[in-house]
Computed example of a mutant assay.
Amino acid sequence: MDATRSCPDAAAEPAAIAPALLDWYDRHRRVLPWRALPGETADPYRVWLSEVMLQQTTVAAVRPRFAAWTARWPDFASLAAADEAEVMAAWAGLGYYARARNLVAAAKVVVAEHGGAFPSDEATLRTLPGLGAYTAAAVAAIAFGRRAVVVDANVERVVARLFAIAEPLPAARVAIRAAADRVTPAARAGDFAQAMMDLGSAICTPKTPSCLLCPLAARCRGFRDGAPERLPVKAAKKAKPQRHGTIFWLQRGQAVLLERRPDKGLLGGMRALPTGPWVDRPPGLEGAPAAADWRLRNATVSHGFTHFDLELSLAVAETDAHHDGDGLWWPIAELDRAGLPTLFAKAAAAVTRRDE
């Protein structure tokens, strides 16, 4: 769908959108720990880190994690020199763990090939590990003031409503990006991108947009049509397959066996409790990390991944034997420092809660 044909009245005045939005942003901008204040110069490292952390994660969840991360690794050099296992542990709970590995990999490239300074143009940024089209555009615009078209979920929603783009997602993203390109100004492109994000977060919300408070209401076709909350139109969700597995809690004294998951695959490189295969039916004790008197608990732990849902049984055992594998014995009282992914943290909580 052509964005211009979908909204001829709004499309006729795209130049008016940026000034109205930036005026609103100057008065209502959010103060965020990674965002430069007026008159300050943005820190590319903090901009990049925040954009990666905020993917599929809320601002409220990211705030404390961002503060802890930047206190420990405040720049590209310190992150490039960091132990990857510690980085993965610090990322625990934020999900999509490949992002953490890519942060380290990108920091190493910045230090080794760019003298520790982040590239400022989109094309070079996209050559760094983990920087896709969105992240490269966001960093170029926000950190360096380059004109770049930045479209996250908030911007996507704002633009779809402004231009009444009714084609269902994901096909509508071509028209949405074209429309966003037409309203993105050459000056203050970074502020414009952040203004769109703030507008989508605070006013142009998914279910109950506050249109009467919106600085763009007079230019919004979705508002004029009377049902902006219907946009963007989302494709019907497909049912996700269900998989099953078993998590193994092997205890020796006051320690429990942890293993490091393979670098490739889900939760790659993370410390975790041993687990058997994830298959279509409950696998019982298949894949147990050691021969022991395993007992299956009358409890399960569930977790949703992008492409499937997972339900895991809990098997527990005690041992006095030495484990010859690649695992390590971790003090149970200090499991919160192991950086377990959410799935395994749930399992650990379920076992220790029963044992209290």
Rank of each mutant, 00 (worst) to 15 (best):
S6F: 12
C7E: 13
P8T: 13
D9S: 15
A16H: 07
A16G: 04
P19T: 03
R27I: 08
P33C: 11
R35D: 11
R35G: 08
P38E: 08
E40M: 07
V52D: 03
M53Q: 09
M53L: 14
Q55F: 00
Q56A: 01
V59G: 04
P64R: 08
F66R: 05
A68F: 08
R72E: 13
P74T: 13
A77W: 09
A89K: 09
R101P: 05
R101H: 13
N102I: 06
L103D: 08
L103P: 04
K108C: 04
K108I: 07
G115R: 10
G116A: 06
E122C: 08
T124V: 15
L128M: 01
L128K: 00
L128D: 01
L131T: 05
T135Y: 02
T135M: 03
V139W: 01
A143S: 02
G145K: 09
V151F: 07
N154K: 07
V155Y: 05
V155H: 04
L162W: 01
R177Y: 09
A178E: 15
A178Y: 10
A179P: 06
D181P: 04
D181S: 13
R182E: 11
T184H: 09
G190Y: 01
F192I: 03
Q194K: 04
Q194A: 05
A195F: 01
A202P: 01
C211T: 08
C214S: 05
L216M: 09
L216A: 07
A217Y: 02
A218N: 12
R219T: 08
R230I: 04
A235V: 06
K238E: 10
P241S: 06
L250F: 00
L257N: 00
L258K: 00
D263Q: 14
T275M: 15
T275Y: 14
P282Y: 03
P283A: 03
P289E: 02
D293P: 07
A299L: 14
E311V: 15
L312I: 14
L312V: 15
A315L: 11
A317V: 02
E318H: 15
T319I: 03
D320H: 11
A321H: 08
D324Q: 12
W330F: 12
W330H: 03
W330M: 01
I332C: 14
G339Y: 09
L340N: 06
L340Y: 10
F344G: 01
A347G: 10
A347K: 06
